[in-house]
Amino acid sequence: KELVLALYDYQEKSPREVTMKKGDILTLLNSTNKDWWKVEVNGRQGAVPAAYVKKL
């Protein structure tokens, strides 16, 4: 499985998103959308802005 690093804090704004903190390591589930990537963090799945994460 592919991992990404959170470059910034992000507070979810809808139920389809997830909150992450700078430095979090997230499991990347889907990166086909260039703006929003689906990730899993702390057992929750949701979208985060692609510009806020970097593939490891």
Rank of each mutant, 00 (worst) to 15 (best):
D24T: 07
D35S: 10
A50D: 04
V39W: 00
A6G: 04
W37N: 01
L7Y: 03
N30P: 04
Q11S: 12
L5V: 15
P15G: 10
E12N: 08
L28W: 01
K21H: 11
A6T: 03
E40H: 04
K1M: 13
N33V: 05
K54M: 14
T19E: 03
L28F: 03
T27V: 15
R44P: 01
I25S: 02
E2N: 12
N30I: 08
V41Y: 11
D24R: 01
I25T: 06
Y52G: 09
Q11W: 13
V18S: 01
Q11C: 12
N42Q: 10
W37L: 06
M20W: 02
R44K: 12
R44W: 05
T19G: 09
D9W: 04
E2Q: 14
Q11A: 12
Y10M: 00
L29C: 07
D24M: 13
L7Q: 04
Q45G: 07
Y52W: 07
L56R: 02
L56H: 06
K38C: 15
A51Y: 11
R16Q: 14
R44I: 08
W37D: 01
W37C: 04
V53P: 03
E17F: 06
Q45F: 09
V4P: 00
L26M: 14
A6M: 04
T27Q: 10
V48K: 01
D35A: 10
L3D: 03
G46D: 01
E2F: 11
L26I: 08
L56D: 02
P15L: 10
L56M: 10
L7A: 04
L26Q: 01
V4A: 13
L7T: 04
K22A: 13
L7K: 05
S14C: 10
P15E: 12
R44A: 07
K13T: 13
M20T: 03
P49T: 02
G43M: 05
G43H: 06
V4N: 01
I25C: 08
E40Y: 06
V41C: 10
L26C: 10
P49Q: 02
K22M: 08
A47P: 02
N42E: 10
N42H: 11
E40A: 08
Q45M: 11
L28S: 00
L29N: 02
K54A: 12
Y8Q: 13
L7D: 01
N42W: 06
L5A: 06
